[in-house]
Each structure stands twice: as C-alpha cells, then as structure tokens.
C-alpha cells in the first residue's frame, strides 16, 4: 500500500491506549486517511510523555483510564512540557468529573468510544486548528449542569427526605422502615441521590448535603 509522504499539511498523530486492539483499530483507520500520519503509539500514561517528546506529534489521542499513570495525569504532563500539542480525550466514560478534569488539564476535545472513524478524523483536524469538539452527550450534560448550577436542586421531595435520613446516619434498611417503603425502593432512592449529586458514596453525599445545607 502506498504511503503518503508527509507534506506540510499532514497532521502528525500519536495514540495512547492500553488496549492493543483499540490501537489496531485507530491505526487502521488513520492509515486510510491521507492527511493524517500516525507517528507513534504508547500503551500507558507513563510512557506517553517520553514518546510524545520523541515523535513530536501535532495531536494526541489519549485514553483516560489506564493502569499505571492515568490519562488525566498524562494530559497534564504533556500540556506542561509541550503546550503546542493538542490532546483529544477518547474514552468509554462520560462521568462529569472525568470530563471536567480532562478539559481542565488542557484536553481540547472529549470524545466517547462510540464515535465513527469520520467523526474522529474530523475532530483531529479541528483540534489541529485549535477548534474543540465535544461528544454531543457530553455537551448536553455540561450545558445542563451549567444551567443547574446548584447541586441538589433537582432532588425530588422524597429524595430530600431520604437524604435527610442519610445525614442522620440511618442505614438503608432503617430508611426503608422509617419511610415505610421496600428496601429496594430505599436503595433506588439512595442511588438516584448519589447520581444527582454526582458523588460516588454515601459519605460524600452526606458531606455535600451538610455543606450545601440541602437538608434542615
């Protein structure tokens, strides 16, 4: 297969992902895109910076959840030492705090791993020209969270009651008894509360509730 000689308009791309098959897939697609040149691959956040410095890419496609050094950390390192390099976060996860961290550390775009090859290459070109791309799901989520600034605003009356009981220190069975609901209903309420408050466990929810005075 002919290899397109790198011209001035060719965009140099570096892949960082710990799944070999994902790298294969990305590499394959880049191969058929003439204006994009794959200049290197890294399998881990710890080697990403070094490989980046030696291959000098224009755009890095960075997976976020990797074993030794996370993608967020790698983004930070690369942006610190090579600020001209643009980084696209490509991951399966769309948790809000992950998105915010990635964008805060300097990633210009955030895509999910349900993106098509065309969308990905378009994002690479856009990133090269300094234009960000956000996966629609992420964009919607961010807009909604910007509108609903105050966490806990969207708690229903019942959820507030449950949150109050959580703050009192009641366990799920105790909450279920207190509210005369089934245990799975109480659990579902707790789960929804954690989701709406965007925390991952009870203590965080309680801390947040107290701090923001979400319960009396």
């Amino acid at each position: 297969m002919r290899v397109t000689p790198p011209s001035r308009k060719t965009i140099r791309v570096l892949l960082v992902d710990d799944h070999e098959m994902v790298r294969r897939g990305l590499a394959t697609y880049l191969k058929i895109t003439p204006d994009l040149l794959l200049v290197g691959e890294a399998t881990d956040g710890s080697t990403a910076l070094a490989i980046c410095q030696s291959t000098k890419p224009d755009v890095v496609i960075m997976d976020l959840v990797m074993p030794k050094v996370s993608g967020i950390e790698a983004i930070r390192q690369i942006r610190a030492s090579m600020p001209a390099v643009q980084i696209i976060a490509l991951t399966s996860f769309q948790e809000r705090d992950l998105v915010q961290q990635a964008l805060q550390e300097g990633a210009i775009s955030y895509l999910l791993k349900n993106v098509t090859g065309e969308e990905l290459t378009a994002a690479i070109r856009a990133a090269y020209h300094g234009r960000p791309t956000l996966a629609p799901e992420i964009a919607h989520d961010l807009i909604r969270s910007a509108n609903h600034r105050q966490p806990g605003e969207d708690l229903t009356k019942r959820e507030r009651e449950v949150l109050a009981l959580m703050v009192e220190g009641l366990t799920n069975p105790e909450i279920a008894t207190r509210l005369s609901v089934s245990l799975s209903t109480a659990r579902a309420h707790v789960s929804n509360i954690l989701s709406k408050l965007n925390v991952s466990n009870r203590s965080e929810a309680v801390a947040l509730a107290l701090r923001l005075k979400l319960v009396r």
Partner: peptide, 25 residues
Amino acid sequence: HDAVSQALFSASLITESLPAIWEKD
C-alpha cells in the same frame, strides 16, 4: 461493560476502513 465496548469500538473502526483498504489491496 468496558472490555466489550473497547472491542466493539475497535471493530467498528476496522470495518469503516475496510472498503478503502479492500480497494487498494
């Protein structure tokens, strides 16, 4: 779900490239 979705993602990229590659080689 992660492992499966990684594989599916990769597979979709490969199939997207298939037509072009097939044509050339």
